[in-house]
Write a protein that binds this DNA or RNA. Structure first.
Lengths: 205, 205
DNA sequence: TATGGAAATTGACGATGCGTCATTCTTGTG
DNA sequence: CACAAGAATGACGCATCGTCAATTTCCATA
């Protein structure tokens, strides 16, 4: 069967490398959810795999780096969704709303995957990875474009992006605490708050 | 000098207890600022005092408990400021603005005290202490009152409180990144955004 | 003032996690 | 098949953890 070579064209070396990395990430996700980031140890993570402790360090330098990889992964999955919302949007309001829906849907999915909601893990750790700040840049760029096109007043785009992200985070958390989480209602709230609030924001000198 | 007894009416026992606790908190604040919460160890903290390692555990059960005590302390100092802003406010807009100013002033002071701004410490840890959630309750109560008095539309008070807090946190962080931090401008932005946004927020059914 | 005992401090201890590295095993190549 | 490069392994030295028996400090009472 010559197809076998096509299905797995890469050598076993590379395959196990990818598999091991993935196994570590999967185990880490489970362990972080179960024990919280703080309490979790590299040994806890590695115990959730078939690997030896030393092997962990062939893939990541530390627990923090694993967390970053997970966060990066999340951001990397979210960014194209956000970008698409931007491209498909018929209006600024439409963009804002789709973006909030996308984010809220995203965190709902991320949370029902694991046991504990992110917010109930204590202490709560937030990390700025390159991909995370890429999401911020994405948001900010969209807002600046909207301002440039006259779809939004000429406000401080940095502050506005921060406000949008802050609202998304906190309202998103609040939404997750309710059952069942109503994504549409939360998105309506956030969109309405920001949109009609723009007129009141100070013009940028 | 009989006054000595008046100046220090309590016994040495109690005095050293208070002093030791304070010494640990002060050292912890310094260590967290220097190394970040994650990297800091109980030993690092205790080394910043004259005490032995075992003594730490007479005062706190863990590093986390020290952090909570610090956060609680912050919230405890902030709450009366917030309450006063509420009592002195001439209008809802006035209240919102004073509250934002109070918060932004608060974090500016808190940050210039230590070396690194809180936001540049990685990983970033956020914790919900009883006092922290008391601040949330305070904010939410104010908003509910405003709604009840007809000063604000009948929106979802929980979401609105979350949105205010999210805006305060993120815009506050952004403000700290600028130099010099312009408290008034940030407060104007946040107040304007929320106030004029209220009309657009969905009515609560 | 002297003293007995409660309370607080101390640092050593066993347990555990850290990151490293010499060794062993595995894989791809000639 | 043989060999070299690469990856996995787990034991090692070091650091921190939280505990606890021994010690010191303080205060109340005689």
């Amino acid at each position: 069967m010559s197809e076998a070579a096509v299905v797995e064209p890469i050598g076993k070396r590379e395959r196990t490398k990818v598999a091991n990395r993935q196994a570590i990430l999967v185990a880490a996700r489970r362990v972080f959810a179960k024990l919280g980031y703080e309490a979790a140890t590299v040994r806890d993570i590695i115990r959730g795999t078939e690997l030896a402790s030393g092997t962990f360090y062939n893939y990541f330098r530390s627990k923090e780096e694993v967390f970053e990889a997970l966060a990066d992964d999340g951001a990397r999955r979210f960014r194209p969704i956000l970008r698409q919302a931007r491209e498909n949007a018929k209006s600024f309001e439409d963009y804002l709303h789709s973006a909030f829906v996308a984010y809220f849907r995203f965190i709902v999915e991320d949370n029902q995957q694991e046991g504990l909601p992110i917010d109930q893990r204590r202490p709560h750790v937030r990390m700025d990875t390159p991909e995370m700040s890429a999401v911020y840049q994405e948001v900010r760029q969209s807002l600046e474009d909207a301002i440039a096109h006259g779809d939004a007043p000429r406000v401080d785009a940095d502050y506005l992006a921060c406000a949008c992200i802050g609202i998304a985070q906190e309202v998103g958390s609040a939404m997750l605490r309710r059952s069942p989480p109503d994504i549409a209602a939360a998105a309506d709230f956030a969109t309405g708050l920001i949109l009609k609030g723009l007129q009141g924001a100070p013009r940028q000198g």
